[in-house]
Design a protein around this nucleic acid. Sequence first.
DNA 1: GATTTTACCTAAAACGTTTTCGTTACTTAT
DNA 2: ATAAGTAACGAAAACGTTTTAGGTAAAATC
Lengths: 343, 343
Amino acid sequence: MKPVTLKEIAEKLNISVTTVSKALKDYPDVSKKTKALVKELAETLNYKPNSFAVHLRTKESKTIGLVIPEIVHHFFSSVIKGIISEAEKEGYLVIILQSNESYELEKKQIDLLLSHRVDGILISLANGTADFKHLNAILEQDKPLVMFDKIAKLVKCSKVIIDDQKAAFIATQHLIDSGCKRIAHFRGPLLPQNSIDRFLGYKKALLANGMEYDPRLVYLSDCGENSFDDGKVNAAQLYKDHSDVDGIFINTDLVAIGAISEFQKLGVQIPEEISIVGFSNWFMSSVISPTITTIDQPGYVMGQTAFIQLYKEIQALKKGTPLQPETITLETALIKRESTKGS
Amino acid sequence: MKPVTLKEIAEKLNISVTTVSKALKDYPDVSKKTKALVKELAETLNYKPNSFAVHLRTKESKTIGLVIPEIVHHFFSSVIKGIISEAEKEGYLVIILQSNESYELEKKQIDLLLSHRVDGILISLANGTADFKHLNAILEQDKPLVMFDKIAKLVKCSKVIIDDQKAAFIATQHLIDSGCKRIAHFRGPLLPQNSIDRFLGYKKALLANGMEYDPRLVYLSDCGENSFDDGKVNAAQLYKDHSDVDGIFINTDLVAIGAISEFQKLGVQIPEEISIVGFSNWFMSSVISPTITTIDQPGYVMGQTAFIQLYKEIQALKKGTPLQPETITLETALIKRESTKGS
DNA sequence: GATTTTACCTAAAACGTTTTCGTTACTTAT
DNA sequence: ATAAGTAACGAAAACGTTTTAGGTAAAATC
């Protein structure tokens, strides 16, 4: 019933707890005979070390924390999967908390993780996060921190990102190359760095091609988040205000799907009348009709990379030689589909 | 740098560790004055109890484990979200592991969780799991276990499920009511209970309406999992073999989306020539064209319910009065959309 | 035969809490 | 003045492990 302890094994074998512990960990100062005996008994009794005792002694929890804005989300759930599968390889467990895009909650979750003494923290910021005290608090405790996707440039920690600006440039360039003359942008919420960078890439592409940048063609999300309805609302508005627009670069596939749905309702042909490029390559975009041209954002790999970086920093810290923060930029790819004209 | 301990607070205040501990937990045998002093200092030093020490003493980890077949999945990620948000309310953290639909992995993950001394385990079984030793091992350690969605009826633990058979009956009945005369079924993999029950519900509905049950109209997934491609393959096969079929009840929305995509390619009108009912109400089904009639499966609520049940069992066990296993069946609903004819 | 080396083992401290059981000093009742 | 009661505190054990610093006997060296 009660879990087996070293002490019980020791008593059954008439040796000391020390020897049992050492035998199980293959210390050189235990005879082969004793090791064999101990290991066999441990096996048959199904001994599992009490992790709390171990952690209390070693000050390592073999657990990391993950704070994420939203779990029910194709990109983020891919990231989670990447993190968990990589963590497993190194014997780490992952505690997942969600910020629900709220700064307050994000702060609270970090506190929770810190008081549970995780070995390191992975985080993708909430859209509203503009203050970084809670993040610096992690670093001040000498706890490794790696940010991914939605990051804060000012925090001195490692980061795993994509080049949003470059990707947005490529997306917009593709619209231009396929013949679009007047290109709008649905940029989503104002704040997160991604939104800003994607907007900048869009603008840069226009200017690089000698096209006019018209701020009226940039549509913000009024609800402050990227949603299907957001796409519908903005598409309807755009249709009313700027019927001359023939291409849209949209911040996120989900919003693009909303926009397409609205355009179909309005009888606007895609891509004949309006071409659309999304962002993130949600699975949905490949099965919807028309399939959506988009930027592939490698969620799974991003999760893997973020964990590996965190792991490196944890190991380095253990050795007493902390690593310098590193920023890793992952490759993206333009995926051409039916929502834009073949160039 | 190093986390603050009770000892340090005690030394600064020239009192004993005992008193500090008691003061923080509002024991009656500590004076108000001392309590105030301790609490204030603890606050300013930002004292956080060392959870390992606490857990080692109290034998409670305030952590539960969750084993799930697949994270990147609309239904399951909804469940995860429900679990985490409910767990948070009670101060529990959730460690998530995935079985990737593999029995071997599932066994390993449970072992991991048990050796990390979680207070309880939530699990949705891998499709391949047919042996339950690893599950009974949890119960033998007197550790609460709650299964959800993909369950094993033979394991004596609480379960949170939907009535798959009833839901499938309703789905099939809807096809019949809307005029379908020859109804096929894409049943997915052979094994999990859900597949079996949905199939039984389909069959029952046919017979209840005096229709013939034709085994040739039941299509198995050959790859053993529910996928988009699976839908395409089965749709193509069905089109070739049984052009007289005018309705299909499909195991999962994702497969239905695949099937629809294939039928569109073949020029088959939906719902005019073939009506389709899916299962699970994936978000996608509401935004695709045509939108898909489906059964709403309350993932978020299922997650919440499963955690609450687990929590109750953990509390009961602490009090020494273990609860009897309970099976909770959640309500589903038929959501009529464009892929079936209005009845 | 005395010394060093080697092989194997163990006692004890430490990690940071919680909790039981005292102890002390003071107040109140007799 | 003595007994009884109360308020406030603390010593110490315990949770289960890891690791340091010995310790003892046998084997090897001179």
